[in-house]
Design a protein around this nucleic acid. Sequence first.
DNA 1: CGAGAAAGTTACCGGTCGGTAACATATGGG
DNA 2: CCCATATGTTACCGACCGGTAACTTTCTCG
Lengths: 201, 201
Amino acid sequence: MTPKTQTETPLPPRERILAAAGELFSKHGVRGVGVEAIADAADTNKMTLYRHFASKDELIAEWVRGIIAQKEAGWEEISAKNPNNPQAQLADWGRRVATTLAEMEGRGSALANALAELPERDHPARRVIEAHKLRQHKRVQKLCEEAGFQDPALAANLFYLLLEGATSCVQCKGLKRIGEDLVELVDRMIANSRNQQQRRL
Amino acid sequence: MTPKTQTETPLPPRERILAAAGELFSKHGVRGVGVEAIADAADTNKMTLYRHFASKDELIAEWVRGIIAQKEAGWEEISAKNPNNPQAQLADWGRRVATTLAEMEGRGSALANALAELPERDHPARRVIEAHKLRQHKRVQKLCEEAGFQDPALAANLFYLLLEGATSCVQCKGLKRIGEDLVELVDRMIANSRNQQQRRL
DNA sequence: CGAGAAAGTTACCGGTCGGTAACATATGGG
DNA sequence: CCCATATGTTACCGACCGGTAACTTTCTCG
């Protein structure tokens, strides 16, 4: 007996809450979802939520940390798959961004949205996101240096603007071929860097 | 008597409300400001606000329409100042975006933020913003065609991604030289288009 | 002056928000 | 078995939200 046929919730409540919060935050924005709705969606209650998270803001921050951890793991994969090949790493990265773009469908980057929704400059989530963006930019810049761009800082900013622009304008439906053109542009950039290297030899 | 020495409010309440709403929306986000705070900041009251605007959402939409009108006026200036010169128009546009960027200080584009804060796909403000972004993209594409880019659609998307990226990543302090590099990149693009034209002659 | 419109004032409505207290229930290990 | 710990349940708090009713003040213009 007690066949456990129903919802099958082997996950501890903390993980369920984080998962439910992630879905709802992505769909309705962090300010558009109340803690009660999150608890309900996680098949638990507000009290348990507050036993695991100090506040809604901390829950948001934790959710953001998870997203960032995924992205950093992506970078690890990239550098593991293309060791000592900055050009290939940049190209791989561009392709991943483009694929992620296609899945976003309508609502844009969760991180960018969170920044827009949390103007308070000392919000825990904001600090985490800003730190991540700076790290990301630094990483691209380092790759651009290794790839032999004549002006690595400029190239890095171009890459970075392309990324930010692409993830930002997914918000607006319409606007065709953004993803494909993104990888096309990244590839051209990389071809350009090869020419610059060659010329310098 | 009645020296009227105080705040000097010659503007009708509707304009005062729109101005106050604009400031507060920009600073705290549309969802972070209540109508009462807006009315107070406009030196009036909630009732008067609701006599001029059907709802808070409509007030937001009206504010957005104002911003868009400004931007469209900017485009009029650009095309008036550089008639029959698509390259110069694009360059001028890049420079204007860069200057605007410097003034944004911290919080990013009001339009992008509004999109992030209003996920409901049929929100009046969202519809207005999306229409404007499509118009903007179309305008850039047309200029790219006239400028003689080999692949005008690709060039237009590059310009557009640069713009969106720049206005988006102002959110994150740090990240130096974004504005300067934006105009540098735009200028290089334009130089590129001239080469392409030349080659085709 | 007097009428009418626009604006200000006060009080209120139902609803939701983030967050907490108090208590009941399960679960699992010594 | 019994106690500690994690979880569930219910009710509640004060604050704020968007929006409205009813009344008063002020101003303009005929």
